[in-house]
Structures are given as C-alpha cells and as structure tokens.
C-alpha cells in the first residue's frame, strides 16, 4: 500500500525504513527459548497440585465417615435418622411396640439389632449393617433399620443382593 507521500505503510518495508518491523500493538514479546521464569511456573503448578491432592485426600477421609445415615422406621414412620458419625460412642437405642421390644446398637461404623422380642429374630441374623443399602427388618415389631447414603457418590458394586 502506498501513502500519499510515496512511503510504503506496510510492516516489511517499515524495516527497510529503519523502523520497527512490528507495529507497537498489544502483542506479547517473542520469547521462544526456556527461561528461568518457566521453572517458577512449573514449580507453582506442582505446588498447587500437591496442595489439591492433600485437600482431596482429607476431604475423602471425612466423607467416608460422614456419608452414611442410619434410618429407623416404625410403622412406616421415621423415628430416627442420624449420621452414623454422630455415634462416636456405641449407643443402644430401644424401641417398644405392642408386640415387644427391640434394642439396636448404633456406632459410627456399624449398626445392628442387638436384641429383639420377635420369634424368628431374622432382624438379628442379618448381622451388621455397614454399607449404604444394608437393612434389617423386624416384621412383628414393624421396624425397619437401614443405612442410606446422604447423597455423596458411592459406587455400588452390586445392583441387588440375593439372600
């Protein structure tokens, strides 16, 4: 392109004019060889990574215990629903119904029916309830004890269990 005064206005010929080969724009400078600052960047990224890994590890540990909720229903009504982590001390929970009594042991890592007045005692034979989805039913007392997840991701290895 030629200007009125005959000078070329393009970048290349600007070099011939002894001016800058690149116009003064908002371009970053061309630095194509490794520089000390790179080490800083890489170091920063590495540090951030390590911190994040720590954070997620700690978070994972806390979720493991806080994720499980024990829910006890009687006659279809929820009479207890608490985080298993709340029971750092194993606690006995008594339930009475018109057919008898039940004692459920609640602790932070497992829940089980300690004693029951029902004749078949199926609810006791089921054993310890640990994972989300585990449950014990006492039909004579019309009580259901189950572990539900509080919404955090839990990968279920099995879709259903045959007993």
């Amino acid at each position: 392109m030629r200007r009125k005064d005959g000078q070329s206005n393009t970048s290349a010929s600007a070099g011939a004019r002894g001016g800058k080969t690149r116009p003064d724009r908002d371009l970053p400078a061309r630095r194509f060889r490794f520089l000390p600052g790179d080490a800083v960047v890489i170091g920063a990224v590495a540090v951030v990574c390590v911190i994040l890994l720590l954070v997620t590890w700690i978070y994972g540990k806390s979720v493991e215990n806080r994720g499980r909720v024990v829910r006890i229903t009687q006659d279809g009504n929820v009479i207890l629903e608490r985080n298993m982590a709340d029971f750092s001390e194993p606690t006995e929970y008594r339930i009475t119904s018109d057919s008898g009594e039940m004692v459920i042991l609640l602790s932070s890592d497992k829940v089980y029916v300690k004693d029951s007045s029902c004749p078949d005692k199926i609810c006791m034979h089921v054993g310890e309830l640990k994972k989300s989805g585990d449950g014990a039913v006492c039909l004579p007392n019309r009580v259901v004890v189950q572990i539900v997840s509080s919404g955090t991701e839990e990968d279920q290895e099995v879709d259903v269990v045959a007993k």
Binding site: A29, R30, L35, G37, V40, I42
Partner: peptide, 11 residues
C-alpha cells in the same frame, strides 16, 4: 519478562 512461551503454555 522471565517467562518463555513454554511457561505461558503450561500455565
């Protein structure tokens, strides 16, 4: 000034 294109890209 001290960061080359590599640092920029990694960041």
């Amino acid at each position: 000034k001290k960061v080359s294109i590599f640092g920029v890209s990694i960041g």
